[in-house]
């Protein structure tokens, strides 16, 4: 019986595990090895030189690395907070039985199914200085108040480029987490609300004392996924800034900086070793933050 079971386990796991090992794990381990070397990324493999931790030492004093990381951290703070706040708000509204809720839900979720590349192309035109929708609307408002319009370059200004990129990421993510929270909220037994209503609690109090605690597990998972998204941002930044990382690289994140170093001609001494080292640091940060995110948000899970 037991050997039959083991054979079954083996035969079912063998193919997925080996595919995963060969095509996913081996390349990542390979990347870690490359981060310890000097390699141009275009020469054949025999030209690779072992350099130990040289690239990691260089990272310590690389201002552009730290600037990119600080942008990631800003995204990490702003994006989850805004996304969660909006998603929770919409989810709460939709579970209150508003008319038309279904329609809004379908619309709000839609950005999630669009590819990031298309979202970024479309939003590149929203932020366009002269023909963009955003300046168009703002100029209409300005005219209504008798002020002159402007052609503000949202993606061409060091102060607005990163917030612009972040708002696109939020725009796309809100619908997804909203649906997630709707499902979670509908799983909360109605009796809990009835009891508290008898106690005279307002909807606001109920939201904080019942909904949020009972939704906590879902929120935790959402935080982890938003953390991963915040540390990536590669496609948004690349397409919205035409690959430049924005003016003064003001929207540069680790992923785009890594690309610029490894592939974009931004490093003449060790493009691939250094770029890969940045990627390895990024990976470690993601793993650390995910673990941290789960730990910080850990609290008594409410069973019901």
């Amino acid at each position: 019986m037991n050997s039959r079971k083991n054979l079954f386990i083996f035969s079912y796991m063998a193919l997925p595990v080996s595919l995963y090992f060969v095509f996913v794990l081996v390349p990542y381990l390979g990347a870690m090895a490359i981060s310890l070397t000097r390699w141009t990324g275009t020469s054949t493999l025999d030209a690779i030189e072992f350099r130990g931790l040289q690239s990691f030492q260089r990272i310590l004093s690389d201002e552009k690395f730290w600037s990119a990381l600080s942008h990631n951290l800003l995204v990490l703070i702003v994006m989850p907070i805004c996304t969660l706040a909006l998603a929770l708000l919409f989810a709460a509204l939709f579970t209150q039985g508003l008319k038309g809720a279904k329609f809004f839900r379908i619309v709000f979720f839609f950005p999630q199914v669009m590819s990031v590349a298309i979202v970024a192309i479309v939003w590149g035109f929203v932020f366009h200085p002269t023909m963009g929708i955003l300046n168009g609307v703002l100029n209409l408002v300005a005219q209504a108040f008798g002020r002159a319009g402007s052609n503000f370059p949202w993606l061409g200004n060091v102060n607005t480029v990163l917030p612009s990129v972040i708002s696109v990421a939020i725009w796309q993510a809100v619908g997804f987490y909203m649906v997630l929270f709707i499902a979670g909220m509908q799983g909360i037994p109605e009796e809990l609300y009835e009891v508290s209503r008898i106690d005279g609690a307002s909807a606001w109090v109920q939201f904080w004392s019942i909904t949020i605690p009972l939704l906590w597990e879902t929120i935790r998972t959402a935080v982890v996924f938003l953390t991963i998204a915040a540390m990536d941002m590669y496609t948004y930044v690349t397409i919205l800034t035409n690959g430049s990382g924005g003016p003064s690289r003001a929207a540069d994140v680790l992923a785009t900086y890594m690309y610029q170093q490894a592939f974009g001609g931004g490093n003449n001494s060790n493009p691939f070793g250094y770029g890969t080292a940045i990627g390895v640091v990024l990976l470690l940060i993601i793993l650390m933050l995910s673990a941290l995110g789960l730990r910080v948000t850990r609290r008594e899970v409410n069973e019901y």
């Binding site: 990347a31 991963i228 590669y234 690309y259 890969t276 990627g279 990976l283 993601i286």
Partner: peptide, 11 residues
């Protein structure tokens, strides 16, 4: 959690 493009060249 892996950033995919880290794996590109080794892949």
């Amino acid at each position: 959690m892996f950033p995919v493009f880290l794996a590109l060249v080794p892949l």
